[in-house]
């Protein structure tokens, strides 16, 4: 079997949104290079429960990098050191015996903390409800091949549509901006004919909601792109700005 290693963890603990938070130090003696980062936390939690201590709370679900539930800042980097990888698919072989790893939650005003490493990302849902859809009720659709879409546009739309809504971009941004998240949806639709009649209303409403939710502005640091587990390009933000300017200048819906 693969050799086991000792991993030291400094983890942010906080009982609730208004409770004081602090780092606690733990050690997992028998970490295995094949285990995932979340499995390391599972092992730690089993250990804590056996010691009569409260386990560390963190959000997780699919553990294959697609649901967007998990999100941890690992040694200062959202989702940890491996490029284009959500923390659930980060494996311990990237660490060595005796390493110390600092684990924190997403930190942003618009993502209030719930407990330990769990935050409330419902602001993302409200941005989507502000316009992240095509207004087409069930049953209204024409034949799927009635509208041609170039392969290039379809692929670009898909690049943006692959956003998993994890919130890493907000956590990594010095301004805690949700621009990459919002722009990914705006840019997806900007490349598709569907929803074209409502594109102006969409971008205005989504951008205004984003601001109202307490996310900061984008000032082109590109930290968001660097940590995005799906590698979504900040070109989305340029598209969003263009769409927004056009919408504002046109003055109408």
């Amino acid at each position: 079997m693969a050799h086991s290693m000792r991993i030291n963890l400094k983890i942010w603990r906080q009982a609730g949104p208004d409770a004081p938070g602090r780092f606690e130090t733990y050690a997992v003696e028998e970490a295995n290079p094949h285990m995932s980062f979340l499995e390391l936390l599972d092992v730690l939690n089993e250990q804590l429960i056996k010691e009569g201590k409260e386990p560390v709370e963190f959000d997780h679900d699919c553990r294959e990098g697609i649901c967007g539930s998990c999100g941890l800042v690992v040694n200062g980097v959202a989702h940890g050191p491996q490029k284009r990888t959500a923390v659930c698919q980060l494996h311990m072989r990237h660490y060595g015996d005796g390493d110390t790893i600092v684990v924190e939650p997403w930190r942003a005003t618009a993502f209030p903390l719930i407990r330990d490493l769990v935050v409330d990302r419902s602001a993302f849902d409200r941005i989507m409800a502000a316009g992240g859809y095509v207004s087409v009720s069930t049953g209204n659709a024409p034949d799927a091949n009635a509208v041609l879409i170039s392969k290039v546009d379809a692929e670009l739309a898909m690049d943006y549509a692959s956003c998993i809504g994890c919130g890493a971009s907000v956590a990594a941004c010095p301004n805690a901006s949700a621009s990459l998240f919002t722009a990914a949806k705006v840019a997806q639709f900007a490349h598709l004919p569907q929803g074209h009649p409502e594109r102006r209303r969409r971008v205005r409403s989504m951008v205004e909601t984003m601001e109202a939710e307490g996310f900061g502005d984008c000032s082109n640091h590109a930290e968001c792109e660097a940590v995005c587990p799906k590698g979504i390009s900040i070109s989305a933000i340029a598209t969003m700005r263009r769409e927004y300017m056009k919408a504002v200048l046109s003055g109408s819906d």
Partner: peptide
């Protein structure tokens, strides 16, 4: 339906 929703 899905195409009309903008599923790429």
């Amino acid at each position: 339906q899905c195409v009309a929703q903008g599923v790429p």
